[in-house]
Simulated scan of single mutants.
Amino acid sequence: MDATLRMALLIDADNAPAAKIDVILAELARHGVANVRRAYGNWKSAHLQKWEQMLHPHAIQPVQQFAYSTGKNASDMAIVVDAMDLLHSGRFDAFAIVSSDADFTPLVMRLRSQNMRVFGFGAKQTPPPFVNACSTFLYLDELGDSGNGNALAPASKAKPKTSAELRQDTALVNLLRGAVDSADGDEGWAHLGPVGHYIANRASFDPRNYGYPNLSSLIEAIGLFEVRRDNKLVYVRNKPKPQPAQKTARKRASAEPTPTSSKPAQ
């Protein structure tokens, strides 16, 4: 994990819950330092009162953005303009966008085209284009609230999905199988490091969105892979597919000795 990234945190305060700010900052602290922290919205609105209470304790700069027309979130354009200015300053390695608005998808794609890591944070209903555009996306619904006295508490508080629920997620199954197949070696074993790297290049994946703290625990829970540990190294491979019951029964029958008749010869 790279803990030296220089990051800019841009918050769409009109479209994000203030109660999640501690865990958002704790997550970013695992990767580097968010030297720029800005929250955008109409600070004259009572709707942002909870965000106002979070500004000074977390060194977040409020950016005033009046609503120029009814029903439009004027903060979107202000965030895009500032993001471009910050990008061209050359002072950052990564951006964090806190919003559930799919309108930020082109911005994220532009940032990533400049080799920027983009961490996304949003609600469960965040549209897939925005989620998939990010390098990593965490659902705020799955993160613990602020105010528990421990900002570095485990991020996932959701009940882990069962093996059956995980297997029903076709996209997840295909992603994990493809990652293991891409990195397998002798006897089909794949080191977990390259598996995780493959996944990071293919999707904005995070096992905590499924209720698991890391990739290895998720892979074990889904029950489709064999897991082998060698000291601190973890290896995985696809479980062999079970043979059809009828075919197995025929094999078992053919392997049994043929009974001989005990009737005396005439």
Score class of each variant (00 low, 15 high):
residue 102 A to T: 11
residue 72 K to R: 13
residue 68 Y to S: 01
residue 103 D to A: 06
residue 127 P to K: 07
residue 86 L to H: 04
residue 156 S to R: 06
residue 74 A to N: 05
residue 57 P to Q: 03
residue 72 K to M: 12
residue 155 A to K: 01
residue 134 C to F: 01
residue 151 A to W: 07
residue 133 A to F: 04
residue 122 G to M: 08
residue 65 Q to P: 02
residue 88 H to M: 06
residue 71 G to D: 11
residue 60 I to V: 15
residue 144 G to V: 08
residue 151 A to H: 03
residue 148 N to L: 13
residue 155 A to W: 01
residue 102 A to F: 05
residue 140 L to S: 11
residue 114 Q to V: 10
residue 148 N to T: 09
residue 137 F to T: 01
residue 59 A to V: 05
residue 60 I to M: 07
residue 53 Q to A: 15
residue 53 Q to C: 06
residue 153 A to E: 13
residue 116 M to F: 05
residue 56 H to M: 12
residue 98 V to I: 09
residue 72 K to T: 15
residue 102 A to E: 13
residue 75 S to Y: 00
residue 80 V to I: 15
residue 115 N to Y: 02
residue 91 R to P: 01
residue 62 P to V: 06
residue 153 A to I: 07
residue 86 L to G: 08
residue 133 A to T: 08
residue 83 A to T: 11
residue 99 S to K: 05
residue 68 Y to F: 12
residue 126 T to W: 00
residue 79 I to G: 02
residue 146 S to I: 10
residue 138 L to Q: 03
residue 69 S to V: 14
residue 54 M to S: 09
residue 107 L to Y: 01
residue 53 Q to S: 13
residue 81 V to D: 03
residue 67 A to L: 07
residue 128 P to C: 08
residue 59 A to S: 12
residue 49 Q to D: 15
residue 101 D to K: 06
residue 162 T to H: 04
residue 54 M to D: 03
residue 113 S to N: 15
residue 47 H to W: 04
residue 101 D to N: 08
residue 137 F to S: 00
residue 116 M to D: 03
residue 119 F to V: 09
residue 69 S to L: 07
residue 91 R to L: 11
residue 109 M to H: 10
residue 151 A to N: 11
residue 143 L to D: 01
residue 111 L to Y: 01
residue 45 S to F: 09
residue 127 P to V: 03
residue 91 R to N: 13
residue 44 K to W: 02
residue 98 V to R: 02
residue 125 Q to V: 14
residue 148 N to R: 10
residue 96 A to Y: 01
residue 105 T to F: 00
residue 130 F to M: 11
residue 44 K to R: 15
residue 146 S to Q: 08
residue 99 S to Q: 02
residue 50 K to F: 05
residue 62 P to F: 07
residue 66 F to R: 10
residue 104 F to Q: 03
residue 141 D to T: 10
residue 84 M to V: 13
residue 120 G to K: 10
residue 79 I to C: 04
residue 57 P to S: 03
residue 153 A to L: 10
residue 159 K to M: 14
residue 144 G to H: 07
residue 142 E to W: 08
residue 149 G to T: 13
residue 123 A to F: 08
residue 55 L to C: 04
residue 113 S to L: 06
residue 157 K to I: 15
residue 149 G to M: 10
residue 149 G to Y: 07
residue 117 R to L: 13
residue 64 Q to M: 14
residue 100 S to P: 07
residue 78 A to R: 08
residue 127 P to D: 06
residue 74 A to L: 05
residue 93 D to K: 09
residue 130 F to A: 02
residue 93 D to S: 07
residue 118 V to C: 00
residue 158 A to N: 14
residue 150 N to S: 15
residue 124 K to T: 12
residue 108 V to P: 02
residue 60 I to G: 04
residue 118 V to T: 11
residue 96 A to H: 01
residue 142 E to G: 11
residue 151 A to F: 05
residue 52 E to M: 14
residue 61 Q to L: 14
residue 82 D to Y: 00
residue 82 D to F: 00
residue 82 D to P: 02
residue 114 Q to K: 12
residue 67 A to H: 11
residue 162 T to C: 03
residue 52 E to S: 14
residue 72 K to W: 13
residue 87 L to S: 01
